[in-house]
Amino acid sequence: MSSPSPTPVRAIYGFILYLAAYVIFVVYIVWAYVPDVLLEAVELSYLPQKYWAVAVPCYLCMLWLLAYPAWFGYIHLCTAPLDSTDLISDEYSQVPNTKSVICAESTPPLADISISDVNRKLYL
């Protein structure tokens, strides 16, 4: 079973990812800001156009901003309507069991509250 505690292997992977992120960032900055003449002098003539140095971060930002409304829409589509019987009970419902309570001050076990009990508390 895996645990979230730090281990030497995770430290090595983390350090390698840390270095790789900085190397990729430096390569990106060099590609974006150094003129093509200097890059061709070092025989780097097969790089993408400079347009993509600006376009890809802009696209990623817009994708990030549009991910929230898309996620909320997906959750809305997956949620049962308010008149659905699945909201009342389903195969995973837990019936409250008062016999398993050891003493009066203890916390009751986790269980679902019936819709009639909820309506009685809210509306009566």
Rank of each mutant, 00 (worst) to 15 (best):
S3W: 12
P4A: 12
R10G: 14
R10S: 14
R10T: 12
A11W: 04
I12A: 11
F15Q: 10
I16W: 12
L17M: 13
L17S: 15
Y18P: 00
L19A: 15
A20G: 12
A21K: 08
A21L: 14
Y22R: 05
F25D: 02
V27S: 12
Y28D: 07
W31E: 02
A32F: 03
D36S: 14
E40Y: 13
A41H: 06
S45I: 03
L47V: 11
P48S: 04
P48W: 10
K50V: 01
C58H: 07
Y59R: 05
M62V: 13
M62E: 03
A67G: 01
P69V: 11
P69M: 11
Y74G: 00
C78L: 05
T79F: 00
A80H: 11
D83I: 00
T85M: 08
D86N: 06
L87D: 01
S89W: 04
S89R: 05
Q94G: 01
N97S: 11
K99R: 09
K99V: 04
I102G: 02
C103A: 15
A104M: 05
S106R: 09
T107E: 13
L110W: 03
L110F: 05
S114L: 03
I115S: 01
S116I: 14
D117E: 15
N119S: 10
N119L: 14
N119D: 12
L122P: 00
Y123H: 09
L124W: 02
